[in-house]
Every structure is written in C-alpha cells, then in structure tokens.
Amino acid sequence: MALLSIQNLEVSFGLRDGPVKALQNINLELNRGDRVGIVGESGAGKSVLGFSILNLIAKPGFISNGKVLFEGEDLVHASQKRLRQIRGDRISMIFQDPMMTLNPVLTIGDQMVECLHAHKKISKKDAREVALQKLQLVQIPSPEKRLDQYPHELSGGMRQRIVIAIALIMDPDLIVADEPTTALDVTIQAEIMELLLNLCEQHNVALILVTHDLGVVAQVTERTVVMYAGRVIEQGPTDEIIKAPQHPYTQGLMNALPQNCLPGQLLNQIPGSMPNLQNIPQGCAFNPRCEFVKESCLKERPDLQSTATHDVACFKVHPERSELLSTGNGSDVKERA
C-alpha cells in the first residue's frame, strides 16, 4: 500500500463572491522514503496542497472533494482527535519562516518535549534526552545549552534546524516541508537542504518539498510536480523534467534560471503573471502567457496525459488530443483521462 495517496483532491475557499477552487483534480502517490518536489509560482496552490495533507487549511479554505489516504486511512474525514494523533507523530511539517514558526515566549526545550508528551507516555527526563539526541542529529552546536534558550537567542539557520529537529522528534513517516529555505540566506539554504536530504535518506522518511526553487528540487527530490493555477500541469521523474521539460510553462521556468542565460544577456522570463483564481481563463489556464497557443487551447482545458517519460497537460505535447476534441469526440477522451 502506498504511504500517501492523494486522490482527486479539490480545495475551495469560501469567499464573499462565492467559493473559489484553489486546488483541482490533484493526484499524487508516495511510498516510504520517496521524495517529491512541488513547484510553481506564488499562488499556484502548492502551499495549500502541503497544508491540505494534514487537513490544516485555515478558514475560509476547506477540502471540498477528494481523498487524502495515509496508509489507506482517509484524513479528509478523520476526526480532530485522530488528526491530532497523526500530526507531529506520523506526518510532520516544516514551515517557511523559522523566525515565525517557534513560539517566542517558550524555550526550545519546552517546544520540543511538548510534542513528545502529546504523542506518547514518556518521563520528563527521557523526553529531554530524546530532544537532546534530535538536536545532535540536526548538528546544532552545544545542544545542551539550546534546550533552555529562547528562539530569539538563535540565528535563522539555527532555528530552522530546531524546527527540523521538532519535525523529526517522533520519527515520522512523512515530512511536508513548505518552502523550508526561502527565508534563509543562500549559504544557509544549501546547508539546511543538505541536512534535510541526509536525514530523510538515513531514516527512510518520505518528503514532500514545496518550493519555487528548481535548483533545490533538482538537488533533493526524485519526482517533481509542477503546478499552475491550482492544477498539476506536469509531473514525473525530476531528472526528466529538469532535462527535458515538456509543458511550455515548465520550459519557461527552466529558461528563467540564471545559469541558462549567457553573461551580459537579459534574464529570460515568462511574460505576464499567474491568473487570479477567481478569474481563470477558459481553456488552458496558461494560454494568455503561452507562445505556442492555438485555437484549441482557448476552448478546452488539456488533461494530464502520459508521454514516454512523464505526464503533461498540454495540447502542444499531445496534438492528437486537440484534434479529437475538435472533431467532437470529447466525451470519449474524457473517459480515457
């Protein structure tokens, strides 16, 4: 059985003008030890996806359809009590900004051991011992001292190590990391990513890495999911997606990397910006920004279809699908999808 299986997930936000779908038709499967990257621009829905796994979407957002199966157990309809048991124990999270993630008025030690006490019977002394071990695991200098310190006494990189130590404290099966290095400076970013990768490998922990940094995805993950306007537009092995992206949007992202430009040249960029979720264009959501746009792209939305190497949702990659649609066999195609 897959460790995590997200099936047809749909997340909506109840806004004043009616509900807006922030995520649609998301399917994702993870086995023990898998590492998957979720990439996209701001607003693509990647963080919402991360939070929806633990059913932690803040109001007015809610999961409006689909399933999140963790070892076969549906977390969407699980009780709050059951969710609390899983959160921090089997699945834990790492947040974006370590400056904001730790409570400023509680000591590091308190914030570590409380997670242990919440999930199992353990004496105070043993809990402190476990906390100490985890701090050593994330290579914090003089860990003993850190337990009695407050977050403001530590640097950003150090705090993110603490957050990782808290995420690991119950030896989880899965870690959802929501842009764990975005708020850190570049040298620290690499260290933290390296640490996270090593720990996941050593302890056979599956990782979902939400990020907009393709370099990080290439470094850490085996599979990549590219999101645009709340949908998956391309997914497959990270190597393939980095080497030969198929969707014009992914190609644009790859071209935008500074190392893909000649010195002295302007950086490449994708013109325009991601559509507002309340105002997604008809057909392919990417069509206003796409240089290969065709008539069919304006009318129908392409579904995710497999190619030789991975899955892409684009008529340019699957021209036969747009022909089918134009000859009126759309219903037949939908069944196949």
Partner: peptide
C-alpha cells in the same frame, strides 16, 4: 491565533487547550 507558531503547534498535534 493567526500566527505561524500557533499553526505549527497545530501541526505538532498538540492538544488545543495547550
């Protein structure tokens, strides 16, 4: 209650009263 550290505390699976 809107802060990140409260969200993180939720993600740790703590009791809401705590």
């Amino acid at each position: 209650l809107q802060s990140e550290y409260v969200k993180f505390a939720l993600a740790k699976g703590l009791n809401p009263m705590r």
